[in-house]
Design a protein around this nucleic acid. Structure first.
Lengths: 208, 208
DNA sequence: GCTCAAGCCTACCAGATGATAGGCAAGTAT
DNA sequence: ATACTTGCCTATCATCTGGTAGGCTTGAGC
């Protein structure tokens, strides 16, 4: 019975720990979060935490891995979902935005990992994500030859920039909004709409 | 004599502390950096640190303020430097990129502050930067009416997105590059070139 | 019934942390 | 010369950190 629930139930202690750790790591950072704080958030004692995850570092790796697993399952689905070639790229990007918007903590954790552990994160991205982005790159180059996309687009750099915008907008968009408006609660809506516009306008060739 | 040097000399203990603190805060984060580590980097003892900056929090504020001061001096200069209206926006952005590229730690610290203290950073940006970005906003709206810029550009959101790209590219660009290439040392060059291209291509109206 | 492992607990540890107290040397002012 | 300030030091503090040792309870297997 216990083995049947494994993975399906969303309330096992282990999953609650991962959930609270993700939240606290992304809000306060890895170094800024104590095991005590996580234990308190879950409602257990510190040694019980250590029982499930033998060290803080191990817990961090598991939190990160839980995000990677999600990606490895979802990315292929995103890339194959829309049959329509013309907006496959935009629909993939939209799925990506939705993934991060589902839980802003995901974007913030990714940003933190990239700044805290640049080399390590580089390797992780290269190993788990680059196979799929390479496909997008090929797709872009084909579109360029076919005249659909602007010829001065640098496919690789373009993909990186789109990623910077997606992650950056979700993680920092509302904060940077302080640069242009005093209202504290600028929703992500207009930012993402403009994000999509920029991504498209800078990609598609002008109609002659 | 001492008062004359004040601010001009770059080797006072206080300035060396600020420099090392900026570096360590941006590399390891605020919580991830101990006063001991800063003191060691400067070459003094921990209590001597406390002598100059009464608390760690006070030191953080001074580090952040040193960046803000730079901005408040440079932003007006950037905005007024190029007389040529047609590329004032791009030249301003280039100056901004150069400012961050001068020391990547600047961009990373800004990103960290935005994620660690969203509300506080929002207020800081709103107070010190928004007066200038409002000018850019007006400038964009005028250009839209004049037909120079695309009409579907959302000026405020556009400015925010450009900022997301600038800060994001410098702070995370080389890491995200792991998504498209295995070579560890992708320079910022191509990324920034593509950044400028995207910013321009998504702004200027198509020639009819 | 007995054994055993799982899951969580209390009690505790060594080390690091931010911060304080107080001393001391050098320079400046009176 | 004396008194005071500046800038740095050593010694020490209470607190918190990640992590360990070991005990209690529950439930399944035999």
């Amino acid at each position: 019975m216990k083995e049947i629930d494994q993975g399906a139930e969303h309330n096992t202690v282990k999953e609650r720990i991962l959930k609270e750790a993700l939240r606290l790591f992304s809000e306060k950072g890895f170094e800024g979060t104590s095991l005590q704080a996580i234990a308190d958030a879950v409602g257990i004692q510190k040694p019980s935490l250590i029982y499930h995850f033998p060290s803080k570092e191990n817990l961090r790796q598991n939190v990160v891995e839980s995000l990677i697993v999600y990606w490895k399952n979802e990315l292929p689905r995103m890339l194959t979902t829309s049959q329509d070639d013309s907006n496959r790229l935009v629909s993939t990007m939209t799925s990506l935005v939705n993934f991060f918007m589902e839980d802003v903590n995901r974007a913030r954790l990714v940003v933190r990992e990239m700044i805290d552990r640049p080399e390590e994160t580089f390797s992780v991205l290269n190993e788990h994500v680059s196979p799929w982005t390479r496909l997008i790159g090929d797709y872009l180059r084909m579109g360029q030859q076919g005249g659909i996309y602007k010829k001065d687009v640098d496919p690789n750099a373009y993909i990186v920039q789109v990623m910077v915008m997606v992650v950056g907008t979700v993680a920092m968009g509302t904060v940077i909004s302080g640069m242009v408006s005093a209202s504290t609660d600028i929703s992500h809506g207009p930012l993402i709409k403009e994000l999509v516009r920029i991504v498209q306008a800078s990609l598609y060739a002008d109609k002659k």
